[in-house]
Design a protein around this nucleic acid. Structure first.
Length: 421
RNA sequence: GUGAGUGUAGCUCAGUUGGUUAGAGCACCAGGUUGUGGCCCUGGUGGCCGUGGGUUCGAGUCCCAUCACUCACCCCA
């Protein structure tokens, strides 16, 4: 019996971990530049949190969650996204009382039981940010600017920002009615799933991918023309501030966020360098969620982005992270006595902060030097019976092939000085 | 859940109308240097050809089933 990884999961191996670490470091850096603080919430929560937060009717909740019952017979779920958990933590820890605005970010694994394909896994990673406590258009723009700044930091140029407004409780139902009125005479020409969407969720018909449905909805009333006064003012101001920030975008009346909690601003960043799953990042305002989850009414805006999808486009633009940490010193002992010396010396050198590797296979000198070369060590320290007797080591510079005899007593300071020069 | 494609060495892949002991490159190991890496030369280790069944004198090759992976639909980051 050979075990294999669960469908839709991946191992991130040493050969690619440098890329992940570098990407995460850059994300941390940009998040910090925008004055966001990291938050880490549990990987699982009460099932009800997601059901209420994301929406019972969404596919995520109705068929994609990893839900199980623990020994106390409580229903738990591996988080399918992070906003609900962050908002739960915001409420539970009274963060709204500590600060007027909380700016939080995360880079974490999430879980959805979908069929895997390019850019879609069952365990994947999202990074994202939430601004909780500000109703201001400037907050919307800060979230959008942050997500763009991150992609720019990776030297990504080919992406498109799509923007829309999905209104609020005042104007959404009236708009849905207008949309239904427009669609009713065309209903039988729509695809089957759109016919089902008609009553429950007519907005979804707008982003149907069927060519025929798109043709039918081409002239449909657009939400941004039917916003209530408050939403229209908000959207107008968001657009002014985006212009002030020098952010270009495309209005897309078909853009409807998949999760129920969004209000007003909705946006998405897409790339033509991905497969069919072309969304790099999706976000928007969710002024109703905090209250929905039992907190005081609190406006919020944020986004979530797919880490693996970022990695996919980074591969395409050949983004090369600078992270590479070869050992500085490779200890090559020959024989049992020298191995004892090497174990002791490795301790001392590592305590001095040097990255030290030593052979663990009792190999011959030739094999050890090959290994040191493979690992791109700066120095190889060769010690055999001769050197033990003479109380000095042979320090070989792998690049120049120069060898120096260094007395054991001077070895640490010699390597420290040489490795920094 | 649905559809299509692909499963041969650690990796990338050849393998003729079915025909002997299944190959290459890279990687790994050893020798060429009795204690000296990279480059080069020589050699070597490593395969239940995804799994099970069937057809056949004979199956990596044909048929059926099954599993896995990939891509796509749906949905979403």
């Amino acid at each position: 019996m050979r075990f294999q990884r669960i469908k839709g999961t991946r191992d991130i191996l040493p050969e690619e971990i440098g890329k992940w670490q570098a990407a995460e470091a850059l994300i941390h850096q940009i998040m910090t530049r925008f004055a966001f603080s990291e938050i880490r919430t549990p990987i699982f929560e009460e099932t009800e949190l997601f059901a209420r937060g994301i929406g019972q009717l969404t596919d995520i909740v109705s068929k994609e969650m990893y839900t199980f019952v623990d020994r106390g017979e409580k229903s738990l779920t591996l988080r399918p996204e992070l906003t609900a958990g962050v908002v739960r933590a915001f409420i539970e820890n009274n963060l709204g009382k500590k600060l007027p605005v909380n700016k939080l970010y995360y880079i974490s694994p999430v879980f959805r039981q979908e069929n895997p394909q390019a850019g879609r896994l069952r365990q994947f990673h999202q990074f994202g940010a939430e601004i909780i406590g500000s109703p201001e258009p400037a907050a919307d723009v800060e979230a959008i600017a942050l997500s763009i700044a991150i992609y720019r930091a990776f030297n990504l140029e080919r992406f498109l920002v799509k923007l829309n407004s999905v209104g609020d409780t005042v104007c959404r139902e009236p708009y849905k009615q207008k949309l239904r009125e427009f669609l009713r005479p065309r209903l039988r020409r729509l695809c089957q799933s759109c016919q089902q969407r008609f009553e429950k969720n007519p907005l979804r018909i707008l982003d149907c991918k069927e060519e025929s449905c798109r043709a039918e909805t081409l002239e449909a009333p657009q939400f941004i023309d039917h916003l209530c006064d408050a939403c229209a003012r908000h959207f107008g101001r968001v657009r002014e501030l985006l212009a002030a920030a020098g952010i270009t975008y495309e209005l897309d009346f078909r853009l409807v966020r998949g999760l129920d909690y969004y209000t007003r601003t909705a946006y998405e960043i897409i790339s033509d360098q991905l497969g069919a799953q072309d969304a790099l990042c999706g976000g928007g305002r969710y002024d109703l969620l905090v209250e929905e989850l039992g907190g005081a009414p609190t406006p919020a805006v944020g986004f979530a982005a797919g880490m693996e999808r970022l990695m996919m486009v980074l591969d395409q633009i050949a983004w090369q992270p600078a992270i590479h940490n070869p050992p500085v010193v490779f200890l090559a002992p020959l024989g049992p006595a020298a191995i004892a010396w090497a174990v002791q010396t490795a301790q001392q050198l590592r305590q001095q902060g040097l990255a030290v590797e030593m052979d663990l296979l009792n190999r011959g000198l030739k094999a050890q030097l090959r290994e040191a070369n493979r690992q791109q060590a700066k120095f190889t320290v060769i010690v055999g019976d001769n050197e033990l007797r003479a109380q000095h080591a042979i320090v070989r510079d792998l690049q120049s092939s120069q060898q120096t005899e260094v007395a054991f007593n001077d070895l640490i300071s010699y390597l420290q000085q040489s490795s920094t020069s």
